[in-house]
Amino acid sequence: MEEEKYIVASNCIFVKGYKNNLLFDIQKRCWYHITFSLSPVDLTKIDTDSIEYMVSEGILLKVPKSLESLLPPISLEYDSPYLIESAIIDRSETSEYSIEKVVHLLDSLSVKFLQVRYYSDIDIEELELLLNYLFESTIESIQLVCPYKKDLLEYIKSNNLFSRNPKLSNIIFSSCSDNIVDDYANIAFTSEIINSSDNCGNIHPNLFSNNPKLFFKSLNFNSCLHKKIGIDEKGFLKNCPTMQNSFCHIDDASDYNIKQLKTSFWSITKDQVNICKDCEFRYICTDCRVITDSPENIYSRPLKCGYNPYISKSGKEKRNIIL
């Protein structure tokens, strides 16, 4: 009988951290926290229970040696056909710029994903106007973030806002002081007060992503700023609304060379960021290049991350596989 060996399934990608390691399963969209690397030498040292578990989970495959070459690793490249893939629009009670001009710009760039953040109460007429503009645009998915108001929630439900606007993917209500019990699948509630772009940049295990697209993007580019634009409260066009520097104002966007929207931040990966480069969670975590420990250093770690990969201080994993 031909000799067999254990190999790592091609859909499972190993990520080495300073103290711990992570295995991301592209197919199942989950990750595992492991204490060893997945080299052939290590596989011979793993206890039987761990081997059996990894086989049952599809992490390890037992194949004849002659077939090993027929199971090559998957490509780790990432590419997007769009000049700009996602956008953020910030609005407040002082915003005076034209929503119509913004949507026209996003449409001309063929933007696919949009987040609209309201820092003050939404005017229902403006919300309906915004959704009407977006309905005919290239936008495929819209997320709305706004302060919680009971009247607004009732309006959304009674007027079937989601069914009338299929591009509206979900709504996040902030500043919720009440314990709201709601079974609406597209609506989430948080007690967090989101009243400016400075509330952005949060890093937390609950925000880790099981999206393979983000994983590959993080391997090759900046997970947050790559092919993204933002419109701040005053209507200035930026890579991110939180940034100080802007490209131009939305009123002048038609005269701006769109190719200049690309910034140096697009290509900064977590493998280049201080401390993050030693973290096992770096490819499933988002990255903020604006709110950092040292604003003068573009490779400084995100300010709002409290995880220490050198002592494995925190972090929640799907399952520990211990050697």
Results as ranks from 00 to 15, higher is better:
M1D: 15
E2S: 13
E3F: 01
E4M: 10
K5P: 10
Y6C: 06
V8A: 05
A9S: 15
C12S: 08
G17Y: 03
N21M: 11
L22D: 08
D25A: 09
I26C: 02
Y32K: 01
H33W: 14
T35M: 13
T35H: 11
F36G: 01
S37R: 10
P40D: 01
D42T: 04
T44S: 15
T44F: 12
I46V: 14
D47W: 02
S56C: 03
L61Q: 14
V63S: 02
L70S: 15
I74S: 13
S75W: 10
L76K: 07
P81I: 03
S86M: 03
I88F: 03
I89P: 02
D90L: 13
S92K: 02
E96M: 01
Y97G: 03
Y97L: 04
I99T: 09
H104M: 12
H104R: 11
L105R: 07
S108Q: 10
L114G: 06
L114I: 00
V116G: 10
Y118T: 02
Y118I: 02
I122C: 13
L127Y: 00
N132T: 05
Y133W: 03
Y133T: 00
F135A: 12
S137W: 04
I139L: 08
S141G: 04
L144S: 04
C146I: 00
P147K: 01
P147R: 01
P147D: 05
S158W: 00
N159G: 04
N160L: 05
F162V: 00
F162Y: 04
R164Y: 03
S169M: 03
N170D: 11
N170H: 07
F173S: 00
C176N: 04
N179V: 11
D182P: 00
A185L: 07
F189Y: 15
T190E: 05
E192L: 10
I194P: 07
N195T: 08
S197D: 13
N202A: 15
I203D: 10
N206H: 12
L207Q: 03
L214F: 15
F216K: 07
F216T: 01
K217D: 11
S218W: 00
S223T: 15
C224T: 09
H226F: 14
I231S: 02
D232G: 08
E233L: 12
G235D: 10
L237D: 09
K238R: 08
N239Q: 08
M243R: 15
Q244L: 11
S246A: 13
D252C: 14
D252Y: 15
A253Y: 03
A253N: 05
S254W: 09
N257Q: 07
Q260F: 10
L261I: 02
S264P: 01
V273Y: 08
K277C: 13
F281W: 12
I284W: 10
C285S: 09
R289C: 09
T292M: 05
S294D: 13
E296V: 12
I298H: 04
I298S: 12
P302A: 06
K304W: 04
C305A: 03
P309M: 01
G315L: 07
G315E: 02
E317I: 06
I321F: 09
